[in-house]
Every structure is written in structure tokens, then in C-alpha cells.
Amino acid sequence: MQMLGAVKDSLVGSLINLTGPGKYVHWGFIQISVANLVVIGLMVIVFFAAILIPFRRHGGRGR
């Protein structure tokens, strides 16, 4: 169990280092954490993907 924990810690730790204060973007009076900015960016990407990627339609009448 301990081994597993150590492996997990090093795996996740190597992806994103969460030790230390959070990172923020300052832009005039706007201040936002990088984490929140990333989520907003992903939402924009998913929004456009949802509009642009064709929706496969299966069988049935009609087109």
C-alpha cells in the first residue's frame, strides 16, 4: 500500500507540482488563477469542437 502511494505520488507529482503558492495571472484589475484560466480555455475548445465535429447519425429514415 505504501509502495503504491509512493508510486502514485511521484507519478502525479511529476505531472504537476502542487507544492508552493498557486500561480496567478494579473491583467489590470483582472486576477485569475492559471488553473481556472486553463479550465475556461478547455471549455472554449470543447464548445467549438462540439459545433464543428460532425455528429454521426445512425440508421433510420430521414437523412
Binding site: A49, A50, I51, F55, R63
Partner: peptide, 14 residues
């Protein structure tokens, strides 16, 4: 069972 044709888009899945 069926929806109008224009519903065939990923945006309607959300």
C-alpha cells in the same frame, strides 16, 4: 424516439 434533424449536433449533447 426521434428528434428534428437539426438536433444531430454535439452541442445538443451537453
Amino acid at each position: 424516439d426521434r428528434q428534428p434533424a437539426y438536433v444531430a449536433s454535439w452541442i445538443y449533447v451537453f
